[in-house]
């Protein structure tokens, strides 16, 4: 079973991430049993029947806009944002927008090319579940990777996790 990091702990997670095969239309689809993340296109095709379904999440690729999901967020429990490459940083803005602009309180999961070296930034931008690519880390390495959440103690900027920049939250004497 895939491992995810949630609330600072490594846990098993059964959610499947459904990927459309090339040429597969979003309209024709059999959802597997259990928790699943479906592509945005599938959500858009089936949202009338799928809204509110337990264990259902929607995943967006990095070129897809969270704005397209903005009106549906009340009927979705979880959103996953894909990192096709870890150098594609669009999802940091996407997660921040989901939390701050659209007030999304559900799970925001980072999927795809997720490395420990991004954990700190992801957490700051509003991701609360991180799912490193299968096989990326051994169990031991993944436990060790938790240290990356604490890479920096007092960052300068405001972000989703901390609404005030350092200059407002600390007394910095000249």
């Amino acid at each position: 079973m895939p491992k995810i990091i949630k609330n600072g702990c490594v846990i098993d997670d059964a959610a499947q991430i459904l990927v459309l095969d090339e040429g597969q239309a979003p309209e024709a689809l059999n959802l597997p049993e259990g928790p699943v993340f479906i592509p945005l296109a599938v959500w858009q095709a089936h949202k009338n029947t799928l809204a509110g379904r337990a264990g259902l999440g929607v995943w967006l690729d990095s070129h897809e806009s969270v704005e397209d999901l903005a009106e549906d967020l009340d009927s979705i429990g979880a959103v996953a944002l894909n990192f096709p490459k870890f150098t594609d940083g669009r999802a940091y803005s996407g997660a921040a927008l989901l939390r701050t602009r659209y007030g999304f309180k559900g799970e925001i999961r980072a999927i795809g090319d997720v490395m420990r070296d991004q954990f700190f930034f992801m957490q700051r931008c509003g991701f609360d579940v991180l799912q490193p690519k299968a096989g990326k880390y051994t169990d031991t390495q993944l436990e060790a990777a938790l240290a990356s959440f604490k890479d920096f103690s007092s960052p300068y900027q405001a972000a989703v996790d901390e609404a005030s920049p350092l200059f407002r939250r600390a007394q910095r004497a000249a």
Partner: peptide, 13 residues
């Protein structure tokens, strides 16, 4: 400089 240093949203532009 301080604002841009390790800005979490803009590390992978």
């Amino acid at each position: 400089r301080q604002w841009s240093t390790l800005h979490p949203e803009f590390a992978f532009l």
